[in-house]
Amino acid sequence: MSPTYILVTGATGFIGSHVVSHLLSQGIRVRATYRSQRKADAMLAHFRTLYGGDKADSLLDFVHTGDLATPGCFDDSLKGGIEVVIHCASPLNFALSPAEFIDPAIAGTKSLLSSISSTPTTKKLVFLSSFAAVVDEANKGIGPGVTYTGEDWNPITYEEGINNLRLSYLASKALSEKEIWKWHDSVGEKSGCGVVSLCPPLVFGPMAYPVDKISELNSSNAELWMLTTGFSPLPLSPVPHWISVHNLATALVNAALNDAIVKKRYTIGSPDPFSTQLAADTFRSLFEWGRERVTEGEPGKYPDACKLEGEIARKELLDGKEYIGWKETMAETLSHFKEIEDRENAKQA
């Protein structure tokens, strides 16, 4: 039987807000955690317009969590009959030190697991992990002939992450997901709480509710938009794969709603590889302003890269539908960001 009350952590974030929107569109009651009152207010106002005030008010409630690393910060969020948790919350600020990156991610995960352990109504945890928890660049590499699946794990250690800022994000994702599966094997499975994790690469798409400034874009979209500033030479992307936020949100919701999907770990992503040169070529072909603002680079010269196994997720989490295509995603996403920029510039004029 499908759940009727779902907790979404990190609900005001880029991916979390799309997940909330998908759930509301299906008439499912949602509790949303937040840390920024301003973002929560903006999201609620938009969803009241999108779905109707009565529907949004009756289906959506908010709980403030504060510091994710604080023990018990999720206790109140799980009260009242929460049946499934979709965990999207994780610190992502590249200005942080390695310890500030890794420790809160692990502590926040442990805090959530502790709260779930004491909440008998919660029967499933859907965990938003990352390709960062899968890729083993040092040993397996990301070159041609390599394929990553849900069976692969990044072997990075806490010590490696804490001593290298570049590796701290990888460590935060890999180590926090490992806490999930360790808990599942020792506690969750015995208590009847199933676990599903999704490990997407770069996630692109429009924001689920209005933002006022380009600076409020999430990290992957911000890196994409940076190319429109004339950045030269075109930077190399460390991640050669991507997924539309619409596909990812659909997959997370379907993982939550399908009782048969438990004890599963998915790699999920478009079969089309990503590169900054591809992005530059696409921007320049789709938009007149793109030809003026995006560095040309070496058109059509795309690096060979590893493959990401996404067929299992496509069949089981996307109902067999094809992944949303690159050009369609870029046309929607860049048009949306240009509107944000134009509004921001108009306010400053």
Rank of each mutant, 00 (worst) to 15 (best):
H46E: 13
T49N: 09
L50V: 07
L50S: 10
Y51R: 09
G53I: 04
G53E: 13
K55D: 04
L59I: 02
D61C: 12
T65R: 07
G66K: 11
G66Q: 13
A69R: 10
T70V: 14
C73I: 12
D76Q: 15
G80T: 05
G81Y: 11
I82L: 06
V84A: 11
H87S: 00
H87R: 05
P91A: 11
L92W: 02
L92I: 11
F94L: 13
E100M: 08
E100N: 07
F101E: 15
F101N: 14
A105S: 15
A105T: 11
T122V: 01
K123P: 08
K123T: 10
K124V: 02
V126G: 10
L128T: 00
S129R: 09
S130G: 04
S130R: 10
A133W: 14
A133C: 04
V134P: 08
D136E: 09
A138G: 00
N139Q: 06
I142F: 01
I142W: 01
V146F: 00
V146R: 08
D152Q: 14
W153V: 03
W153Y: 15
N154T: 04
N154V: 05
N154M: 09
P155F: 01
P155W: 01
I156L: 01
T157A: 01
E159I: 06
E160V: 05
